[in-house]
Design a protein around this nucleic acid. Structure first.
Length: 498
RNA sequence: GGGGGUGUAACUCAGCGGUAGAGUAUCUGCCUUUUAAGCAGAGAGUCGACGGUUCAAAUCCGUCCACCCUCACCA
């Protein structure tokens, strides 16, 4: 502790010296004629014209040698070496230069040239402090070995990286790349849907009733209204109201909040896209899913596939499609199609799996799927026909009332999305939600609640509709080859320090 | 919640019962084309927190905290 204060003290002294020299260490304005990347792209031009240029950036390396010095500065576009010579910039300005620290933001006026060893650089004619850094940035040194960048003392402490993401972004360029990719992926989702005449909407995050998923909510309180509110756990029920309202194609990209455990694939607040299309069903949602993933892969990665470790995941159509019950049968030989609870429980016992006594056959079938099948679904797969018992918002299959027209998307052993032919029969919907309430009374804290306003909307009439939800964070993980959700969320949830 | 791991200087790490170490960063000196600049020197630490064992604890033991991995729970 003493030490860091000492380092800060030294920097404050330099700041004080600048003030004594009548130099404002935090000026209000600066100038810039070029981004660094613009100089690098047309190096020869800038050298030949001897054009006066001005760049701004953060100082991230300094090699001073007597009356001359080299430094590297970085802006949002790239980095460049600057060459500062006492004879050129003058004695007073050189005194300022000597007070520069790593981490300072500076403005460099000068011209471009190549050094003796051939590095494209800026010969400074004037250096200006733009913002003095008081806390020492961790130092990461780089060296190019055989054309590859070798880093030394990389800023790699995971906890520090997440808690101080600004340092992570600054010191680990690949982290910034991940979040740029995230932004691009979301943009391409929008482009894809906008081109199909979907309307992007925003629905309430604070809701007096929550629904649309099985999850425990966060709750809060509105003082003026004096009511308790919940943070949404899904977008679903409000988007369906819009379908009732005649918006035939809608989507929303936004955060959901679930008051549950956290791990490599779960953050309490996470981003989802949900889209709904009137006069469509879950088959249409499969097509949209395939096309959307392909669109992202094609536009951003110029490819139909991504590589995860040694595995290549191909998004080429058509993806595999198989029903949950068939997949279980293929994998284990067990036929659960009759939903015989005793038979299913016996199968659980045979495999020494823990049985949830309160669970019905549908829930247990899902558990069998998760245990035996899910990890093996590597290539993109639509797992279809979920038990009705665990799908309270999905329409049942006409030929089998135990099942629904629902699918989930599985890739590389993980779930990426959920979709169904939406239940639009208000009487059936009421029964399903009331069944959920019974589950809640039996202690299931994640069961749905009855949303009378939503049911009323259905009573006015909702057209046949297909709906689809995809986890944005996991999608980004997939496309950026990350195994932790914290790597794709800028500020993941952390316990407070101290 | 169970199991395993990590926590030492601003950063990256070594040390694992006997006076707290290295590299980088910082400071001082020398140095007008360096690039992980160099050379010489200096300063910098409640060894995550609190207890215990011991003549002696960064090191052994216990409790707690944070983070990571994993299983369970959960989308």
């Amino acid at each position: 502790m003493e030490n860091i204060n000492q380092l800060i003290g030294i920097k404050k002294q330099k700041l004080q010296k600048m003030k004594e020299m009548n130099v404002n260490p935090f000026p209000n304005r600066c100038e810039r004629t070029h981004y660094i990347s613009e100089l690098l792209e047309k190096q020869e031009n800038f050298i030949e014209n001897e054009e006066k240029i001005i760049v701004v950036g953060r100082l991230n390396a300094m090699r001073r040698q007597g009356k001359v010095g080299f430094a590297n500065i970085t802006d949002n576009s790239d980095k460049i070496q600057i060459f500062v010579r006492k004879d050129t910039i003058g004695e007073d300005n050189y005194e300022i230069f000597k007070l520069f620290d790593l981490g300072d933001f500076v403005q460099i006026d000068g011209t471009c040239f190549k050094t003796k060893v051939g590095e494209f650089s800026i010969r400074a004619e004037k250096v200006t402090i733009l913002s003095k850094s008081l806390k020492p940035l961790p130092t990461v040194k780089e060296k190019i070995v055989d054309g590859r960048k070798q880093q030394y003392d990389k800023f790699s402490n995971i906890e520090l990286r997440y808690r101080k993401r600004y340092l992570d972004l600054l010191l680990n360029p690949e982290v910034k790349d991940t979040f740029i990719l995230r932004a691009n992926i979301i943009r391409e989702i929008r482009n894809f849907l906008d081109a199909k005449n979907y309307i992007e909407v925003e629905t309430p995050i604070m809701q007096s009733l929550y629904g649309g998923a099985n999850a425990r909510p966060f709750s809060t309180h509105h003082n003026t209204l004096n009511i308790d509110l919940y943070l949404r756990i899904a977008l679903e029920l409000y988007l369906k109201r819009l379908i009732v309202g005649g918006m035939e194609r809608v989507y929303e990209i936004g955060k959901n909040f679930r008051n549950e455990g956290m791990d490599r694939t779960h953050n309490p607040e996470f981003s989802m896209i949900e889209l709904y299309q009137a006069f469509a069903d879950y088959n249409d949602m499969m097509k949209i899913t395939e096309d959307m993933f392909l669109h992202i892969a094609n536009t951003i990665f110029k490819s139909d596939a991504v590589k995860i470790g040694e595995t290549e995941i191909s998004f080429q159509k058509p993806w595999l499609r198989a029903s949950m019950i068939d997949l279980i049968k293929d994998e284990t030989g067990f036929d659960a199609s009759d939903f015989d609870l005793t038979k299913i429980r016996n199968f659980f016992q045979k495999h020494k799996l823990e049985i949830d006594e309160k669970a019905g056959p549908g829930k247990l079938i899902e558990e069998l799927f998760e245990h035996f099948v899910e990890p093996k679904l590597i290539q993109p797969t639509f797992v279809t026909d979920f038990p009705k018992e665990i799908s309270p918002l999905a329409k049942e299959k006409p030929e089998n009332p135990l099942l629904t027209e629902r699918f989930e998307i599985f890739i590389n052993g993980n779930e990426y999305g959920n979709a169904f032919t939406e239940l639009n029969d208000p009487i059936d919907q009421r029964e399903r939600l009331e069944a959920q309430v019974k589950l809640r009374e039996m202690g299931d804290t994640e069961a749905n609640v009855v949303d009378e306003d939503f049911l009323e909307a259905l009573e006015y009439g909702m057209p046949p509709t297909g709906g689809l939800g995809i986890g944005i964070d996991r999608l980004v993980m997939l496309f950026t080859n990350n195994t932790s959700i914290k790597e794709v969320i800028l500020f993941p949830q952390m316990k407070p320090e101290e």
